[in-house]
């Protein structure tokens, strides 16, 4: 698309920067005047609802407070959702429609799972999970781990790319009606895909982390 210091910048990276800038500037503008003595406005309330909604969804899958998981999974959801929602902007190409982006996100999840697991259980504890329930399952567990990332990447790419392809086909068949309907449908599926991607990432990460200690001992069954 263009070059910066002799580095070629393609559309995927450029639109990714736009999404990043939108998210960062919006967050910065809304939270810049956040003080205890200033009452919350509607924008701040909106952000609180979004953040707390993400937090509650994470806690339903992975009980126990973990801000690092919120930072990671929340950013994943917001980035994918914002990229998919900007599909309705004329001329905008969502970065999630690029297999390189979805592969990058899948690889980041693939890397995040052992990192969160090691942080939670330690290196030994995490590696032991590959031998569960038996050492015979080691190759299958490794294959499962990689297949997760691949399925995540292909699922997201397929959904977003298919939407774009279908819209392009319908645009050639019925230029004025179907694209609008497909764009509206694309908004819905984009948010759903973002939700599914974030939830699956949370499930994978939480499966690698240690289960939270029960706050109360379980009663013995007589």
């Amino acid at each position: 698309m263009f070059e910066v210091w002799d580095i070629p910048i393609n559309a995927t990276i450029f639109y990714t920067w736009i999404v990043m800038a939108l998210l960062t500037v919006a967050s910065l503008l809304i939270t810049r005047n956040l003080r205890p003595d200033v009452p919350p406005n509607r924008w701040r309330t909106m952000l609180e609802v979004i953040v707390q909604g993400i937090q509650s969804q994470i806690e339903e899958v992975a009980p126990g407070p973990s801000r690092h998981l919120l930072y990671y999974v929340g950013t994943l959801f917001l980035f994918v959702a914002m990229s998919n929602l900007l599909l309705v902007v004329p001329g905008f190409e969502p970065p999630t429609a690029s297999l390189s982006t979805t592969t990058a996100l899948a690889l980041s999840v693939l890397i995040a799972v052992p990192l969160f697991g090691i942080t939670s259980q330690g290196l030994g504890g995490y590696l032991k999970t590959y031998l569960q329930p038996s050492f015979i399952m080691l190759p299958f567990n490794i294959i499962s781990e990689f297949s997760r990332g691949i399925s995540l990447a292909i699922r997201l790419y397929g959904n977003i790319m298919s939407g774009a392809v279908i819209a392009a086909i319908l645009l050639s068949v019925a230029p004025f009606f179907f694209p609008v309907v497909m764009d509206v449908l694309g908004l819905l599926t984009g948010v759903i895909q973002a939700y599914i991607f974030a939830i699956l990432a949370t499930v994978y990460i939480s499966s690698a982390t240690a289960p939270p200690k029960p706050s109360q001992p379980e009663k013995e069954i007589p």
């Binding site: 393609n10 960062t24 939270t31 956040l34 929340g74 950013t75 996100l105």
Partner: peptide, 27 residues
């Protein structure tokens, strides 16, 4: 592009942590 997107994503995690999650959660 994959490497750049991974880097972009990590930068975005840091930016949102700095300007979104932490101020909102602290508030």
């Amino acid at each position: 592009t994959v490497a750049a997107q991974i880097a972009n994503f990590l930068v975005l995690v840091w930016l949102l942590k700095r300007f979104l999650y932490r101020p909102i959660l602290d508030g």
